[in-house]
């Protein structure tokens, strides 16, 4: 079931790109791209799409409109908003959250990095 992760990503891409609420069978049709077919390695069934959708719902990325028949699924936030949330954590603008993520440049400040670059560049030009 390792490819469920891939399907989750592709499904979110469909929802993000469409920007509207869609029923599961419509999502399945739009998922029939070469990449998704390769990930599922078999004809993509609506039940699989429903499984993936409920996983995404549990994780808080998708909401379901239950008033409608069939249920309509919609992305909770846009791709850009999620990307901003992620980068926020990575760049440590949320001081409470960064400890778990060790970034490559660590505590090196832009100024310090700049002096290092100046220090290294004349010699590298030789």
């Amino acid at each position: 079931m390792g490819n469920l992760g891939v399907l989750e990503r592709l499904l979110m891409d469909v929802l993000w790109d469409s920007g509207q609420a869609l029923p599961a069978n419509e999502l399945r049709d739009r998922l029939l791209t070469p990449a998704a077919v390769a990930a599922s390695r078999k004809p993509l069934a609506t039940t699989t799409v429903l499984t993936v959708l409920s996983r995404l719902e549990t994780k808080g990325f998708v909401t379901r409109d239950r008033d409608n028949r069939p249920h309509l699924y919609r992305a909770v936030r846009t791709r850009a908003e999620h990307t901003a949330e992620l980068m926020h954590e990575v760049l440590g603008s949320a001081p409470d959250r960064q400890a778990a993520l060790a970034r490559f440049i660590g505590n090196v400040t832009p100024q310090e990095a700049e002096s290092l670059r100046l220090l290294l560049s004349p010699a590298s030009g030789e």
Binding site: P95, Q98, I105, V108, T109, P110, A113, L116, R117, L120
Partner: peptide, 28 residues
């Protein structure tokens, strides 16, 4: 060292502020 210098100095303009997180007040 060059990799750190490049990534580190590219960070400034992108994030707008320093990247220590703890005591960032814009003084950076």
């Amino acid at each position: 060292a060059m990799a750190i210098a490049l990534v580190g100095s590219a960070h400034g303009p992108v994030t707008g502020a320093g990247d220590t997180g703890a005591g960032d007040t814009g003084a950076g």
